[in-house]
């Protein structure tokens, strides 16, 4: 079975990419495919607590994060020095140092970017 990494790098509010990347992760997990997530760049906005998007902004994707464990998606990686205020963000992430972050991409049979 292939181990997949879904790399989210776009803002949850600038396009559907983040949502459709998460959708793919959830479907993979539903089909019992091992899948991890990593976030960088504008996609880090997904982690900020207390988001109140309007219908024009789109779905509140932040709310999905709490449910990931029910899909057995247990690893959500970010780079440690990504400038997030970790008192106001979702606590389920695993910060990696730069070397770990770079090595991470080689741990998977496939990486899909959104």
């Amino acid at each position: 079975m292939k181990h997949t990494l879904i790399h989210l790098n776009t803002s949850p509010y600038s396009s559907l990419a983040c949502k459709e990347g998460l959708d793919l992760a959830l479907v993979l997990a539903t089909f019992e495919q091992p899948v991890d997530l990593c976030l960088s760049g504008a996609a880090l906005a997904l982690l900020t607590d207390d988001q109140q998007p309007t219908v024009e902004h789109g779905k509140n994707l932040h709310k999905l994060l709490a449910g990931l464990e029910f899909y057995d998606i247990e690893n959500v990686f970010i780079e440690a020095n990504s400038g997030l205020d970790n008192t106001k963000t979702w606590q389920g992430v695993q910060p990696l140092n730069q070397a770990e972050w770079q090595a991470m991409f080689s741990h998977y049979q496939q990486v899909f970017r959104f």
Partner: peptide, 20 residues
């Protein structure tokens, strides 16, 4: 087709290549 079809393709080929 649903994403399930993609999962099936993924598991029956050697490699998936993404173009974005």
């Amino acid at each position: 087709e649903g994403l399930g079809t993609f999962v099936d393709l993924m598991n029956t080929t050697n490699k998936v290549i993404q173009f974005r």
